[in-house]
Design a protein around this nucleic acid. Structure first.
Lengths: 111, 111
DNA sequence: TTTTAGTACTTTGCAATACATAGTACTAAA
DNA sequence: TTTAGTACTATGTATTGCAAAGTACTAAAA
């Protein structure tokens, strides 16, 4: 059990949720997303983000458009779809339930 | 993307954490643990719990003792070790960080 | 012009893990 | 001596995060 990894484990189930939260604020391209997540205290490597974006796009929760960049290759700007918004609401509800459950487990003491 | 599963995904990274939280309250055998978790809103099937308990025990975060039962086969009563307590503190810190991160992502709006 | 560096997207393969399922074993009651 | 209820164990698989290597574009340096 390596301690460094405990936060990473917890984060894993929240990856899609966090991506959708970021894109809920407006369209962004992958480096933007990674920066936003890092800024909030969550690290997500490229090798994780890109496949996830592709999966979310295939499920029609996200869409994207190409935009030329003067600083390198063109960028894929992703944005959340209406279907994605609906799913985000579900995830928000799930997140609340999880928080409540953990909170309950933390606070209760044996009778 | 099946909606029924979104909560399950989020829960996955918290399994060990929740088991340790339950045992922090006092020793319990697997059926107790499953009942406690269910009572808090988390379902954990046997096929998940037993291997996890074995892993945590091998890492010396848990220990157990056998106790005879009049209602069937003997039970394995698990309890948390000092090492487990320390690890639980780490997990609590990680959990706080995750909550803060998600909260930040939820509340921020694009400038 | 060619090379190098920086940025961005893509693909591949592996290791870890949750968990469904089936199996073993014990007790008590029918 | 079956049957049912409870408890622990073992096996096999599908998913998934992610490291790492690869491709492609632009701009600046040599």
């Amino acid at each position: 059990m390596n301690i460094e990894n405990s936060k990473a484990q917890m984060r894993k189930g929240l990856l899609e949720f966090c991506i959708l939260l970021v894109l809920h604020r407006g369209e962004a391209y992958p480096s933007d997303i990674i920066a936003s997540l890092k800024n909030s205290g969550l690290d997500m490597p490229e090798g994780t983000l890109y496949p996830l974006l592709t999966r979310l796009k295939n499920e029609e929760l996200l869409t994207y458009r190409w935009e030329e960049s003067t600083m390198g290759p063109p960028r894929k700007y992703f944005s959340i779809t209406e279907k994605g918004q609906e799913f985000l609401r579900v995830l928000n509800a799930s997140w609340s339930e999880i928080q409540t459950a953990v909170s309950t487990l933390s606070q209760s003491s044996k009778p």
